[in-house]
């Protein structure tokens, strides 16, 4: 692989757009996931009694249960959102960039 191909790709506005869009999206989702998890950990560390509070005085279920299960579900949903966009939009852009190089 020759260096000029890499430079050519790097200067391609489509490549720059791809990188910018994908990076922004990936970091946004990462921050979201990390933020949710960190909030959960901080809750455990500083307010464990809140997680142990009953949702309803008559039921044994505590707030910790929906919060925990919610985290699991959100992890799945976030990966789904990313894969959908990456396998469509981002891959199309990548193909376009590579097609221009191989011309």
């Amino acid at each position: 692989m020759h260096d000029h191909i890499y430079t050519q790709i790097q200067n391609n506005p489509k490549f720059r757009e791809l990188v910018a869009r994908r990076e922004r999206f990936a970091w946004l989702l990462s921050a979201l996931m990390l933020g949710l998890y960190l909030a959960f950990i901080l809750l455990i560390a500083f307010e464990p009694q809140w997680l142990g509070t009953r949702i309803d005085p008559d039921s044994t279920t505590t707030w910790g249960i929906p919060v925990g299960v919610g985290l699991i579900v959100s992890a799945f949903v976030l990966t789904g959102i990313y894969v959908r966009r990456a396998n469509g939009e981002f891959d199309d852009l990548t193909r376009a960039v590579l097609a221009e190089v191989h011309k």
Partner: peptide, 13 residues
């Protein structure tokens, strides 16, 4: 949960 939440981040980054 700790085991699971690493996955999305692996995918994204």
């Amino acid at each position: 949960i700790g085991f699971l939440v690493g996955w999305p981040v692996i995918l994204f980054l």
